[in-house]
Computed example of a mutant assay.
Amino acid sequence: MTDRVVVAGAVYDQGRLLAARRSAPPELAGRWELPGGKLEPGETPRQALVRELREELGIEVEPGERIPGEWPLRPGYVLRVWTARVLSGEPRPLQDHDALRWLSRREWDSVDWLDQDVPAVIEAVRRLPDPDIPSAPEAPTRT
């Protein structure tokens, strides 16, 4: 039997990563995760990510690249993570969460992440822009 896939989004905005605090089930409540949920029959992982983030956070996202790796959850489930950017809406904790935080590269470890999310979060943080590296200057325009 193959593991059931759980998709999660490393949602980026303005150089920050979105973290969601679980409100249920009781053994996970109060800890932080990358938001997402289970892949349903007939869905692609990207479709599941879009649906889950719409249901859980009230946002429309565009999935990006898959973060390399796969992390075991409870028996029979495996976590896969994609980067995503918000197309519309303001994230709100609608289902399974009671708080959201945008974390910069320096703040990523200021919350108590679920153990299985930590490797994916580290990979997601590596993809955040470094605030200490300035953007390339624009080429001068010729007049």
Rank of each mutant, 00 (worst) to 15 (best):
V125D: 05
D96A: 12
T143P: 06
A19T: 01
D117N: 15
V6W: 09
K38Q: 09
Y77E: 00
S104R: 12
R106M: 00
E90A: 11
G76T: 07
V61L: 11
A120D: 03
I133M: 03
E27D: 11
L39C: 12
G64K: 14
L128H: 11
Y12M: 12
P131D: 09
I133S: 01
W32M: 06
P72Y: 01
E62C: 02
E27F: 15
L17R: 06
R16W: 04
D130R: 14
E107L: 00
E123C: 04
W82S: 10
L17N: 10
R142K: 10
R106V: 00
V121S: 03
R31I: 01
V81K: 06
V86D: 05
G58M: 09
R46A: 15
L128I: 01
L53R: 12
G76C: 12
S135K: 09
A8R: 13
S135R: 15
E33R: 10
G76F: 08
D132Y: 09
D96Q: 08
R106G: 00
E56M: 05
E56Q: 13
M1Y: 01
D132E: 14
A124C: 10
V125F: 09
A84N: 06
E56D: 13
E90S: 12
A29I: 11
P140V: 06
P41E: 05
D117R: 08
V81T: 15
Q14S: 15
V125A: 13
P91M: 09
D130L: 07
R106K: 02
